[in-house]
Simulated assay, not measured.
Amino acid sequence: MQNENFYTRLGRTALKISRLCLGTVNFGGRVEEAEAHEIMDRAVEHGINFFDTADIYGWRVHKGYTEEAIGRWFARGNGRREKIVLATKVGSPMSEGPNDGGLSARHIIAACEGSLRRLRTDWIDLYQMHHVDRAAPWEEIWQAMETLVAQGKVRYVGSSNFAGWHLAAAQEAAARRHFLGIVSEQCVYNLVTRHVELEVIPAAQAYGIAVLAWSPLHGGLLGGVLDKLARGTAVKSAQGRAVPALQRHRKAIKEYEKFCAELGVPPAQVGLAWVLSRPGVTAPVIGPRAVDQLDGALRALELKLSDTELDRLDALFPPVGNGGPAPEAWIS
């Protein structure tokens, strides 16, 4: 049985989710389907009930592949679908067609139908706008989302990669329509990238919006990258956003790994524990490529960093400006 802190509410809703969200961006191209199914089974075994994907995921094979792989996992039965709070996303271009992307009412509804078909399910628990679409008025977006909710195809609506003022604009527009609006915002947040502390997290807290932190280890940068590079075992941390970031933060990363060694805790667990400790954060979105990485992430839930340890991490990776929310963060 999980402890009372293993689950939390999704923002201001009554929905209960695990404090770790299983991200599936690596399923397809980096993780073969059989192992992806094993990871999902292990997650359920440990009580993780919150899975995140997107219609575009799996693009290394073909767009939509990850949803298809999850759908085949659901089709194996044993209550798999019923046990999961399923989140997917809409908005990224699915083809070169002029209307096969963005947040038009046409695309939102068509994309939802496509996701439902690939996922082999009748409903999506959390339907997230993947990016802001500056061309789409909120009246159009909410009309489409209201239609999907009324049809029973979507339970809640979330956002991803929004600025704080986008959250405010969306919520005020939803309130005028007497609609629940956004219940979660998924944003990049980790020790290296702390910009959301300025306005996104304060806006989310003000509106009762859950904060889901994607890339909590900054693409593997905070997962022991220097040690892995020295041993020749680096995979994700040797590519993508982690590469230029390592060049900029090598000195801090070296001290960070030394600090983790002093604690006797793997860097990945320290990085996750830090995100879990942040005010306003509901759940980090983890992206394990193997079962042992999932097991390690679960151990981060048991790690409580002291004030002294948190101060040490702040010294290594300072917040933006004076720290905390804007405008005080940038007033000298």
Rank of each mutant, 00 (worst) to 15 (best):
V235S: 08
V235R: 11
K258Y: 10
L298R: 14
K251I: 10
K228I: 14
S277Q: 09
R289E: 15
G232D: 09
F259A: 08
G240A: 09
K304Y: 12
V243Y: 10
L226S: 01
A268E: 13
D292R: 14
Q293M: 08
R248G: 04
R231Q: 15
A242E: 00
G223T: 04
S277V: 10
V243H: 08
D227C: 07
A242W: 07
Q293F: 08
D307H: 12
L298W: 05
S306R: 07
A290V: 09
A234S: 07
L301C: 14
R248M: 14
K258D: 13
V270L: 11
D307N: 13
D307R: 14
K258V: 13
K254I: 03
A268G: 12
I286H: 01
G287V: 11
L294Q: 06
R231S: 15
C260Y: 01
A290R: 14
G271K: 05
A261V: 14
Q269G: 02
G296S: 12
V291E: 01
P266M: 05
G280H: 00
A297N: 13
V243G: 01
D292W: 14
H249R: 11
L272Q: 00
K304V: 15
K254H: 12
P267C: 05
R241N: 13
V225P: 00
I253E: 01
R250H: 09
I286M: 03
P288T: 05
L272M: 06
A238M: 06
R231C: 14
K228L: 14
V275P: 05
G232C: 10
V281G: 00
R250T: 03
V225R: 01
V285L: 11
V291H: 03
D295T: 09
L226K: 04
S277H: 12
P279I: 13
A242S: 11
A242F: 08
S306Q: 04
G232N: 10
A273V: 03
R278V: 15
L305K: 06
R289Q: 15
Q293I: 06
L226T: 04
T282N: 02
T233M: 05
R289V: 15
E262V: 07
D295S: 10
R289I: 15
T233F: 05
A261G: 04
V275S: 12
G280M: 01
A300K: 00
V265W: 03
G287I: 09
R250V: 02
I253W: 00
G240E: 01
D295R: 14
G287T: 14
K236M: 13
A273G: 05
A261Q: 09
T233R: 09
K254Y: 03
A252H: 04
V281P: 00
C260N: 01
S306K: 06
I286Q: 00
L310H: 12
G223E: 04
L246D: 04
P244R: 02
R248W: 06
D292M: 12
S277P: 06
G280Q: 04
D307C: 05
V265I: 14
R248E: 15
K304F: 12
G240Q: 03
Q269L: 06
L294N: 03
E255M: 11
D307A: 14
A300L: 08
G280W: 01
L272C: 04
G223S: 12
G224Q: 05
P279Q: 10
V275D: 06
R231F: 12
G224T: 00
K258C: 11
G224M: 07
A245E: 01
